[in-house]
């Protein structure tokens, strides 16, 4: 379910609209040292104007930005994140931005799963000479984020748990492995010397992302309270048979445990991995 859909049904929607004028979005901009940051500088030198909402952060390469970082920032309440990198082929570190592209793809999928509009995250290639483009991108993006309204993650427990789950999912070996391998599998070929169909791998990653997200969400929701499959299905808006299949796997991996069932509905609680005393 997406954010738009969610807010459309939100009781306080009208009320928020009234104060829209007072609210200013908080936007983080990650700019790569060699292209986008230089582009932003050029933008300033050339006196191109853009809204004040963006807080630029310089990084050496756009690949430095992990899904975990992005999700963490959204968890902290940021309304938008802009990633600026070199154009494909121009990366200072040869191929870094190819990976950025793949990772942003995953980030967007996870944002969508969590209920944060994927449009709150934008990736743009801005070269050192594209000062004007930079101002255009920032202006446009600020408009987009304004239109989406504030990120309600801190007020909305449900959204918070979903973003936390997306964050957890982004850290799974499975998603990291698939996204990390994607480029080579499509570009150079796999261990059997076959190049994978981009659509096929895209489908695999989409499914894996959705599964890992849902599994993480189950763990997130069952951390403080033991929950039944039906309860989880209702909160997550996922069919209960699918929830049960996830729980089968989570139990197999000793991540969740069945409580002594009272009556006919067992509940499950996340196993906290205790450190050693």
């Amino acid at each position: 379910m997406t954010e738009k859909h969610h807010t459309a049904h939100h009781q306080t929607h009208a009320h928020e609209k009234k104060h829209e004028g007072e609210w200013e979005p908080k936007i983080i901009g990650f700019l790569c040292n060699w292209c986008s940051y230089a582009g932003a500088d050029l933008c300033g030198v050339s006196r191109y104007q853009y809204p004040t909402n963006i807080r630029p952060v310089r990084v050496m390469c756009s690949t430095r930005i992990s899904p975990h970082l992005v999700l963490d920032i959204f968890k902290a309440g940021a309304d938008g994140i802009l990633l600026g990198g070199c154009h494909i082929g121009d990366c200072h570190y040869i191929s870094g931005n190819y990976y950025t592209e793949k990772r942003v793809n995953l980030m967007k999928k996870l944002l969508k799963e969590s209920g944060i509009a994927p449009e709150r995250l934008r990736l743009e290639w801005v070269s050192a000479s594209e000062g004007e483009k930079f101002s255009k991108v920032v202006t446009e993006f600020t408009e987009t984020v304004k239109a989406l309204g504030p990120n309600k993650v801190k007020k909305d427990e449900r959204l918070m748990s979903r973003v936390a789950a997306a964050d957890m999912a982004s850290e799974t070996f499975r998603l990291k492995a698939l996204v990390g391998k994607e480029l080579n599998l499509v570009g150079k070929g796999n261990v059997y010397d076959n190049k994978l169909d981009p659509e096929e791998i895209e489908k695999i990653i989409t499914e894996a992302t959705s599964d890992e997200f849902e599994r993480s969400l189950i763990l997130e929701l069952s951390r403080t309270k033991a929950r039944s499959v039906k309860e989880l299905g209702e909160i997550m808006e996922v069919p209960t048979d699918k929830v049960l299949r996830h729980i089968v796997l989570l139990r197999q991996n000793s991540l969740i445990a069945m409580e002594h069932p009272e009556g006919f509905t067992p509940t499950y609680k996340t196993i906290e991995i205790g450190g050693e005393q």
Binding site: S228, D241, L244, T265
Partner: peptide
């Protein structure tokens, strides 16, 4: 097996009476 020996309904994880 999948349910560690507790009989559960595949549809919703309830124990069928």
């Amino acid at each position: 097996g999948p349910y560690f020996g507790t009989v559960l309904r595949p549809s919703d994880g309830d124990i069928p009476e």
